[in-house]
Design a protein around this nucleic acid. Structure first.
Ligand code: MN
Ligand code: MN
Ligand code: ZN
Ligand code: ZN
Lengths: 141, 141
DNA sequence: TTACAATATTATAATAATTTCAAATATTCA
DNA sequence: TGAATATTTGAAATTATTATAATATTGTAA
């Protein structure tokens, strides 16, 4: 659990999955490849629509199952941007998300989470931190 | 007839809604009262389940519609914590949210958004900022 | 107060995302 | 290879949300 993606290559990650007892099926590798190549915070629908071109028998259920597997393996996370549709992100360095309300695109941006001063969480165990901004991107402005 | 008076702020907000051409129906006032009293980031379901006790003909659609109205009026916002169900928060001072993965409760915590150092958002217009943590709360630890 | 137009509420049906399920298929490993 | 095990698939079920149309309420002006 808890693979670190940052300094690992594509093949190293697949390797790690295998070592964690996760079968490297054709579908899973293709889905992971999609996430690895397209850093666009896709929905299940987006992944499915793209991959069905090469894998005509692909089932949406498999995409859902694989996302779950990859989240459990700690290499993908769901990002809290939509309340009506899940969006996924491959785990890399800490970063924030900005959603443009005009074009809908979800941008990554750099931040230093340590710099944020918070209070009232004494004796709370924090597993995950997310920063999410909304507004209008520079292209749409 | 009518709602029990609570305090100035509560009535001021209702007043403001009326001035903005929003009808103050019995349902809307009760739903707003629920949000005002229970700062628990409720789902539509939670609001509905609670209010149907006093208003047996209440429709879930009305709760949905009212949440939309209140968001448009800028006194309620949807908070990004769930991808499968919307949760709402009455707009107050800036604060962060912490969701306990054991009990599911969503806590408020204080933060200073200005302290967070970000980069890469030049020429982006930011309308809204959210900070969301996940982990185990002090009660569940 | 009453009348009336504007707007809201309701129940129901429709839609959309996700989950569940069981059968078919694929993979592992002896 | 073949049995055991795990995955994929498509269909059905579930859940959250939105659309529709008949009915009811609200705010206002006579
Ligand atoms: Mn990202
Ligand atoms: Mn809050
Ligand atoms: Zn944009
Ligand atoms: Zn807890």
């Amino acid at each position: 659990m808890g693979l670190v993606l940052m300094d690992k290559t594509f093949n190293h990650i697949l390797e790690g999955l295998k070592e964690n007892g996760i079968y490297l099926t054709h579908q899973r590798m293709k889905i992971f490849e999609y996430l690895y190549k397209n850093r666009n915070h896709p929905t299940v629908e987006m992944i499915y629509k793209d991959l069905i071109k090469e894998m005509p028998t692909l089932s949406k259920t498999t995409v859902y199952n694989t996302m779950k597997i990859l989240m459990e393996a700690g290499i993908v996370k769901e990002i809290p941007v939509n309340s009506n549709e899940s969006r996924y992100d491959i785990l890399t360095e800490e970063h924030g998300h900005f959603k443009c309300i005009k074009c809908g695109y979800i941008y990554d941006f750099n931040l230093n989470m340590e710099s944020l001063s918070v209070e009232g969480l004494d004796n709370f165990i924090i597993y995950d931190k997310d920063v999410f901004f909304k507004g209008i991107c520079s292209s749409c402005f």
